[in-house]
Design a binder for these strands. Structure first.
Length: 188
DNA sequence: AAGACGCCCAACCGCAGGATG
DNA sequence: ACATCCTGCGGTTGGGCGTCT
């Protein structure tokens, strides 16, 4: 018991929601140095985050080509098709949906499609025999993919971060366009 | 109008596989 | 051949937000 499990470095590791400052640091650093070697990237960039956390944030959220919300019926169909083929291989499925992340597809599946499958199974159980394929194809016509995306809210962090940033339409809501335009301003 | 409830999403955790020394 | 480190993946959870009663 002499040695404490938590040294000073461990104590400095941040967890929880990312602040806009952190986002900007990460975007800037990757714009200048490229991505990869996440642990040293996190240290070099001065982020008190694990490399894992930085990687996740970048891949799921900050990457310029990432798309969110509004899963189209075509995408939805493709997701179900690929899931029927590969199961929960989310990263594999995501590779066939440009701009979509495995995390998003996983969330989408769990929150929307899985729910409808359960309902379909309950319904089918009352009427006739069924299997996964049948219920999966059945829900393809019932799931409504019309979604709206809300940009990330930094409201909780704005009290500590008060940078000179624009607040055109949503005072406390920041879009990726905002972040990237800021990155361009900072980086160039 | 207030509280309860359910849904959705971002982020964390643990594990496995690959790369490197 | 082995040990260690890093990356990537899938599962799970907590908090915020909207809707319903």
């Amino acid at each position: 018991m002499d040695k404490k499990p938590c040294n000073s470095q461990d104590a400095e590791v941040r967890k929880g929601p990312w602040t806009m400052e952190e986002d900007l640091i990460l975007i800037n650093y990757i714009a200048n140095h490229g991505e990869g070697v996440w642990n040293s990237l996190a240290r070099s960039a001065g982020l008190k985050r694990t490399g894992k956390s930085c990687r996740l944030r970048w891949l799921n959220y900050l990457r310029p080509d990432v798309r969110r919300g509004n899963i189209t019926p075509e995408e939805q169909l493709l997701i179900m098709e690929l899931h029927a083929k590969w199961g929960n291989r989310w990263s594999k499925i995501a590779k066939h949906l440009p701009g979509r992340t495995d995390n998003e597809i996983k969330n989408y599946w769990r929150t929307r499609i899985q729910k409808h499958i359960k309902q379909a199974e309950t319904f089918a159980g009352q009427g006739s025999e069924h299997n996964d394929q049948a219920s999966t194809s059945q829900i393809s016509t019932t799931v409504n993919a019309a979604e709206t995306y809300s940009p990330p809210s930094y409201a909780g962090n704005m009290e500590t971060f008060q940078g000179p940033f624009p607040t055109e339409s949503n005072e406390n809501l920041w879009s990726m366009e905002d972040l990237w335009s800021m990155q361009l301003l900072n980086g160039d």
